[in-house]
Write a protein that binds this DNA or RNA. Sequence first.
DNA 1: TTAACGTCTATAAAGTCTATAGACTAACCC
DNA 2: GGGTTAGTCTATAGACTTTATAGACGTTAA
Lengths: 153, 153
Amino acid sequence: MITKKTKYAFKALIHLAGTPSGHPVLIADLAESENIPKKFLEFILLSLRKGGLLNSRVGKGGGYSLALPADKISVGSIIRILEGDFAPVQCLSTTNRTRCEECKDEETCGIRLTMADVHAVLTTTLGNLTLADMIERSEQARKKLRNVVDYCI
Amino acid sequence: MITKKTKYAFKALIHLAGTPSGHPVLIADLAESENIPKKFLEFILLSLRKGGLLNSRVGKGGGYSLALPADKISVGSIIRILEGDFAPVQCLSTTNRTRCEECKDEETCGIRLTMADVHAVLTTTLGNLTLADMIERSEQARKKLRNVVDYCI
DNA sequence: TTAACGTCTATAAAGTCTATAGACTAACCC
DNA sequence: GGGTTAGTCTATAGACTTTATAGACGTTAA
């Protein structure tokens, strides 16, 4: 289950993707329009910037904007920045890899060997989905709904 | 990331799968041989029993045993019993489905629409992997290691 | 009827997630 | 260069979840 922090990040990124580039968005504006606690959002945006997904400009006329086009920002990279990783078990993590404390033999651990499959599938799926997909799917759903409404009228 | 509770469950189930059927295993023995806090394990085994994966017998000569053959126990069902679900977002949960608090429009939510893919992939993967797979992979890894060792000698 | 064994409720300890406060630094504009 | 705008950073508090323990109770076999 992804955390609220990550969901806030998705919302913020989707919002930023929808604003013309070169027009940085203020934390305060983003917080208000997406209903995210401002101070919490500050921290989230900072993480995303450090992760290379956002650019920021300090001072008047400053704010945040995407560092990459939306179709180059994978859902996986967003999750990795905010949750650290999405490995099902610690010993499979690519970023924080450590032993699973109490796993006697990592090499023959059935849990690990099985979860490796899950991890691989997740990595592929989350790596292929992008911010642009998120936006596109949302728009298509909106369009579909509108058509249904039109049809009803 | 699966919790310790679920990992303990995997270990316990693997252990139970390795004992001849009709021979119930004591919580205390299981706790000791798998290095799991006994009282915590009690609760885990109880959950697994209520989830239909284990049989138990109370009283002298009692204990726990698998309620199904190992190849009929999916990894997904184990996780579902202990973690409630593996949906990436609340609104996609099959067991505890509720709105995502603050999601204005579920039907056009890009996060939900995208995560639905992830959920589907996870459901398939975790549904196809079984306790028997876990055991088999562990054994194969052990065999492989032994061969390498033999070869070295 | 007694010893073996699982069941259940309550609760404590530790860790993580969510949120907030406030001081600080950088950039812009006059 | 001084005021204003805006992001940066550190610390910390509250709520919730995970992990673990204690103890009383119910059930079964011999």
